[in-house]
Design a protein around this nucleic acid. Structure first.
Length: 479
RNA sequence: GGCCCGGUGGUCAAGAGGCCUAAGACUCCGCCCUUUCACGGCGGCAACACGAGUUCGAAUCUCGUCCGGGUCACCA
């Protein structure tokens, strides 16, 4: 069997949404599973929607996620150019062939006429084939005279067309449903519908992976393949990723793009892993996969037909799994920029902070809220010292702090082990539960009931001087 | 509206006529661990859209209904 070749063909609109990325992922996986090639092609035939910097977003996203392409605009390849606007003459050449073979015709209808066709029909109307039967030589003459025109595909008006999709199975449609769609626009550029087919064939694409909004127009593409006598590709149509039951995930809805998720502190691998699971399920029960593992286990048969709703909760969980699986060193590196947004103090021990945060962090961007008491201790209500689980009362808290402060002052160093030994030892000799002693210490140190670590860790992070200052202040507060 | 596609817990989903008294994961709840919160461990709640068929037997096949999505551009 011939080598598998798939492509990802985004248009540079400046936004890489999650559904797009997933399509890229599936394309990549289908090719790589069988040692095939993954090609990047840019579809920029809509000259009005070009966006500055959009190409970089595409490149960066694919690179960061590891979806490396074998051929593309920047790396070249044997089937270039890989940017459609640079292939303009190619499309015209093939459109001419269709004109000659009678599978296409020149249409001189004005936009106004087409619009009136729609308004007369109350909004929805197919092109009426007004120019369909203009003899070719007459049409060509009018073209030479400079009359504006488009080239349309001549659809059969009877019979049916069918194909078998790799995920949806057998699909059949009446040819009468097909419109004489435009192949070449009046500006000389091809429409997506045409460029896509020409490029996919010329680039040797064997598996076309795309959103299922193309499912019902696939027969049109097939007719084009047939007209040229080309072999049809395997189609893999994927249902969309939804925001909710009714709406797709989209920029319009203000939904997160890949870039947004990364900025919020999601891990690239986790995002990729999660979207793989949206609409595809592996054979076994394992859900966590590296890209390399996915390449092994991916199977077209596991792609589901129904749309999948993007679940931020599950992404969050998976992200946390990836974070927990990091070494302390890796986590420190990943978390440092986020820690530094909140903790400015130069002598803060970011390694210790990171160690505390590690198992408690699901999304890196949420680190700040956990540790903003480190630089400054806000005023806090005195009744935080009262807690029923540890049986803490104002009286007990006062007694504990009074005992703990001098003991800590006398410590030879401020290592975690030393502090821990000291505090636990005191609880024992005073014959109280650890919690009763630890509670007021942690409250005084942080001014909070919830902290990323226990009393010992908090003292360690704050350092001797600041710790003692806060403990004394706490004692004062209780009065 | 015509045509195409889909419909298993709140979400992602397994399921290919008997193995289904319907897996697993996320969420949620309870318990344990514990120096708070997490992590971890254990347990729990929760679904075959509806109605007819076919069959000894249907989540699985057929038809209809309902619901949802897509498509009908000189956008991709």
């Amino acid at each position: 069997m011939a080598k598998i070749r798939t492509r990802f063909a985004p248009s540079p609109t400046g936004y890489m949404h999650v559904g797009n990325l997933r399509t890229a992922l599936y394309s990549y996986l289908i090719a790589k599973k069988d040692g095939g090639d993954f090609i990047l092609r840019i579809e920029d035939t809509d000259r009005e929607r070009l966006k500055e910097g959009a190409m970089d977003i595409i490149y960066d996203t694919l690179r960061e996620t590891g979806l490396n392409w074998d051929e593309g605009p920047d790396v070249g390849g044997d089937f270039g150019p890989y940017i459609q606007s640079e292939r303009k003459t190619i499309y015209m050449e093939y459109a001419q062939k269709l004109l000659q073979s009678g599978h296409a015709y020149c249409c001189f209808c004005t936009k106004e006429r087409l619009e009136s066709l729609h308004t007369e029909a109350g909004g929805i109307a197919k092109y009426d084939g007004h120019c369909r039967d203009i003899p070719l030589d007459e049409a060509l003459e009018r073209v030479r005279n400079g009359e504006p025109y488009v080239i349309r595909q001549k659809m059969p008006r009877e019979g049916t067309s069918s194909f078998t999709d790799a995920v949806f199975g057998y699909v059949e449609i009446d040819n009468s449903e097909l419109e004489d769609q435009i192949l070449i626009k009046s500006d000389g550029y091809p429409t997506y519908n045409f460029a896509n087919v020409i490029d996919d064939h010329l680039m040797g694409i064997t598996h076309v992976v795309r959103g299922n909004e193309y499912l019902s127009s696939t027969p049109k593409y097939n007719l084009l393949y047939d007209a040229f006598g080309w072999e049809r590709p395997v189609y893999v149509h994927c249902s969309p990723v939804m925001k909710d039951q009714h709406a797709k995930l989209s920029k319009r809805n203000g939904d997160a793009s890949y870039q947004d998720l990364i900025a919020k502190g999601y891990i690239s691998e986790a995002v990729l892993n999660y979207i793989a699971l949206l609409g595809w399920s592996p054979k076994g029960e394992e859900e966590k996969f590296t890209l390399a593992e996915m390449t092994q286990v991916f199977d077209i048969g596991g792609i589901s037909k129904s749309p999948a709703i993007f679940d931020p909760e599950k992404l969050r969980w998976l992200n946390a799994e990836y974070i927990r699986a990091m070494s302390d060193e890796q986590f420190h590196e990943a978390a440092l920029p986020f820690i530094r947004q909140t903790v400015k103090s130069e002598n803060a021990d970011t390694r210790l902070i990171a160690k505390c945060l590690h198992q408690r962090t699901e999304v890196l961007g949420e680190i700040g809220a956990q540790i903003d008491f480190i630089d400054t201790l806000d005023d806090y209500p005195v009744d935080l010292f009262v807690n029923k689980k540890s049986k803490s009362t104002l009286e007990s808290s006062k007694a504990m702090l009074e005992a703990v402060i001098p003991a800590l002052e006398a410590l030879p160093n401020w290592e975690q082990d030393t502090i821990h030994e000291c505090l636990i030892g005191m609880a024992q000799s005073m014959e109280v539960k650890n919690g009763l002693l630890m509670w007021p210490v942690r409250i005084a140190a942080s001014g909070r009931t919830v902290t990323p670590g226990g009393a010992v860790e908090m003292l360690g992070i704050l350092g001797r001087e600041e710790s003692l200052r806060r403990l004394r202040k706490g004692l004062e507060k209780i009065g």
